[in-house]
Design a protein around this nucleic acid. Structure first.
Lengths: 336, 336
DNA sequence: GTGAAAGCGCTAACAT
DNA sequence: ATGTTAGCGCTTTCAC
């Protein structure tokens, strides 16, 4: 590939003038600059980012680590990250982990070896190993922003949804529709944000003078199949719930499946609300009422926080909490 | 960051021995190697990929350009690409274009400047500008593999679905169920693969002695809203179709929406089949019968083809055509 | 406004 | 099995 010296030679200037013409055009006389640019264009010259990174110790890459891009929760986040990053001439390196700690750790190593400028960690599970990993990254001074989930004991920058509020609002909405017996299809309570959601549910019941019952909580994971199985458990044990609050859309998808197979009509026999608003939840029958998480904005803001602090050469410390928004569709109905 | 010379010094060897210990361990005595590795670990040494790339002219990056990761067609492709790439210690740089030619072109420039080793182009629209861009890339000798869409006049490597066959099978399936009046909700016929699908539809009718009628083709784009609008057009003009073949799942989603709003019951009043099998089409009511494209495999194979040819230092020339598979769910029904 | 020298961290090529 | 030298293409620093 043609390099800076060739251009310099053709233009009759030193290679430094060429470098300046690209990086600090104001330091080069207009005439010289135009000449250089013309020659560069004709020669198909492109500054080598690799060589530049070598000197500057900046690569303009950010690493984006997430469990699985196939999960419809993530694509919007990725899009948000990419959109902000590209505006600032950063590129995004994407990598899936399937929540495997070993993979996560080796990715971090790989990223460091590649000299990436910062990391966005989305959907980190939050176990002991994860905490260790995150602490490690922070100790190394790599700018890092968490998305969607945070780890309580670790002082890191993050962008998350107000999970307490989202669950509170969802529950409150059901109560407003007259529901009192509201089951919960819960995601793992070992994960902080789901604890927050459960607290929101309890608080809403409490504020409406409805007694909370532990037996109404049915815990699964975050998959459609788990939603299905957990719904089955619930209906095997009780048949008098008028509504279910699912902690994520995927779990609601599973509930839909169970109901379809068992002739339970949503919303006539059962109201369903959840949290997420993934792309296709609007196309279920009936369209799913859900608390929409601002996924795109989460990605966009996380990239903004990360890149701004990279530029200032400091560790990001912003903690951003976004409100979820009720998307009223047709899976909930008034009772009595 | 600690470099190769520091490790060399601590280990009492030359920097080349350290380099070899990492890159060609068999050339270093076991004793020396162990010593080096121990010191490297303790010092937190990681070879700099940037410096390595500088010398070797290989970055182990591949660029993945696609219209929009939010479109559920793409995440599985991305996952396939990432899975293969990472096995070979490559990383994927992801970028969205919204089918904007300018963005595509500037991305290619950016990638070249970054010295990426190859490009995967997914869902390229196929207009004149796109053809120009692709020709340009090929002329520059950048290893490139297309996914999902190919450009007929350009001799490039690609991985696509057998679109003719997919449409043929879909249509044939409907005919087998007794349908004869089958409308088509088509994606843009200026795009080659959709022409292929239309040919498949025609061929299946022909083979079953059903006359093809041009008026039965209703063209939209590839969005849900377009599916809705196009379905509306169709039903305004005709009310006696027993089945519709939609060229992509998104269009089918739009049809579902229209039907729900107009009390047309799928599959009792209307059978619907399409092509894609995106993640959530199984969760529509009724679950969508569709020709499943092997999206993950498309991504995986494209990465394989690309990376293998990068390693052999040649331009990829494999053209891979994958069969779509009928996923029989509940949106189609026998007539009469 | 422009240039010369040095060096970022590594590997290729050659030497021992 | 190990070492020496040179140089990849840039930017930083200092000089004019």
């Amino acid at each position: 590939m043609v390099n800076i010296y060739e251009i310099a030679k053709k233009a009759g200037v030193s290679h430094m003038t060429v470098s300046r013409a690209f990086n600090n055009p104001e330091l080069v006389s207009e005439k010289t600059r135009n000449k250089i640019m013309k020659i560069a264009n004709e020669s198909g010259y492109r500054p080598s980012q690799v060589a530049r990174s070598m000197r500057t110790k900046k690569t303009n890459y950010i690493g984006l680590i997430l469990p699985d891009i196939i999960n419809p929760f993530f694509p919007e986040i990725v899009r948000g990250v990419d959109d902000y990053a590209r505006k600032d001439k950063y590129n995004v390196i994407l990598a899936n982990t399937d929540n495997d700690y070993e993979v996560q750790a080796s990715l971090v190593e790989m990223f460091l070896s590649r000299g990436i400028d910062g990391i966005i960690l989305s959907g980190i599970a939050g176990g002991k190993k994860d905490t260790e990993l995150l602490n490690n990254i922070i100790k190394k001074g790599i700018p890092t922003v968490l998305i969607d989930r945070y780890i309580p004991d670790v002082n890191s920058s993050y962008v998350i949804t107000d999970n307490f509020r989202a669950a509170y609002d969802a529950t409150n909405y059901l109560v407003g529709l007259g529901h009192e017996r509201i089951g919960v299809i819960s995601s793992p309570q070992k994960i902080k944000i789901f604890q927050d959601r459960l607290r929101g549910y309890k608080a809403a019941l409490n504020d409406n003078d409805i007694v909370f019952r532990d037996e109404y909580i049915f815990e699964g994971d975050e998959s459609i199949s788990s939603g299905y199985k957990t719904a089955k458990n619930l209906f095997t044990k009780y048949d008098d719930f008028t509504a279910i609050f699912a902690m994520c859309d995927f779990m609601a998808f599973g509930i839909y499946k169970y109901c379809r197979e068992n002739n339970i009509i949503i919303p006539d026999d059962l109201s369903v609300i959840s949290i997420d608003n993934i792309y296709t939840s609007a196309f279920l029958t009936p369209p799913l009422t859900t608390m929409s998480q601002k996924k795109y904005e989460m990605g966009y803001s996380a990239a903004k926080i990360l890149i701004e602090s990279i530029k200032k050469n400091k560790i990001p410390d912003t903690q951003l909490v976004l409100k979820a928004k009720l998307i009223e569709r047709q899976s909930c109905k008034k009772v009595k």
